[in-house]
């Protein structure tokens, strides 16, 4: 997770619950979490402009429902959940717009990756993104959180509401599928 020396989560949460200080405190939340959440979203929606829109919706949703955050869970967990839901909603909307079945995988998102000016990966990186996008949604999320963010299974479990055992299995299956994807293509 991103960190700033001046960021004190307990104090920020306290200020979030008071009318006079909430807006300023939420500004600190944005500054603290925008990068982390952006990368999580970007790996899901692939395109930078789309990730920017989803990130914006994530913070707007969090802000307008800040009363619902009672501090029972970690703020990061709550924000991650919103970001994931917003990403999935966005992808489903995009599938509908492109006449793609909601049951299909998200490979279509990678089709424009090579022409994306905010992507400078080589062929093998495009291939990896294609392999990741072909995974079922939950495996894709687990793979991204584990492989790129190196998130602990315990934290992931809080966000995704799945047992750590199931998450480990999910990650294992995801890696195997990616390896098979590469074997088939070679």
């Amino acid at each position: 997770m991103a960190s700033r020396q001046t960021y004190d989560e307990a104090a920020v949460i306290e200020r979030l619950h008071h009318q006079g200080t909430a807006r300023e405190a939420f500004g600190e939340v944005i500054a603290h979490y925008s990068s982390t959440l952006y990368w999580q979203i970007r790996r899901m929606v692939i395109d930078h402009d789309d990730a920017n829109d989803v990130l914006q919706n994530t913070f707007l949703k969090a802000w307008t429902s800040i009363d619902n955050f009672r501090g029972d869970a970690k703020l990061s967990t709550w924000l991650y959940k919103i970001a994931i839901n917003e990403s999935i909603t966005f992808i489903n909307k995009k599938k509908v717009q492109n006449n793609i079945s909601l049951d299909d995988d998200d490979s279509f998102l990678v089709n424009t990756l090579e022409s994306d000016r905010w992507f400078d990966g080589d062929e093998i990186q495009v291939k990896l993104q294609r392999a990741i996008a072909s995974l079922p949604e939950k495996q894709r999320l687990v793979f991204n959180m584990r492989y790129y963010d190196e998130m602990k299974y315990e934290d992931m479990s809080q966000i995704l509401g799945t047992s750590t055992g199931a998450l480990k299995a999910s990650y294992h299956h995801a890696v195997k599928k990616i390896e098979s994807f590469f074997d088939e293509q070679d």
Binding site: W39, R43, H48, W118, F119, D120, G121, I124, Q125, Y148
Partner: peptide
């Protein structure tokens, strides 16, 4: 492959 996804931001 490594962990660099190739994604960039402005």
């Amino acid at each position: 492959i490594g962990k660099d996804s190739g994604f960039k931001t402005p």
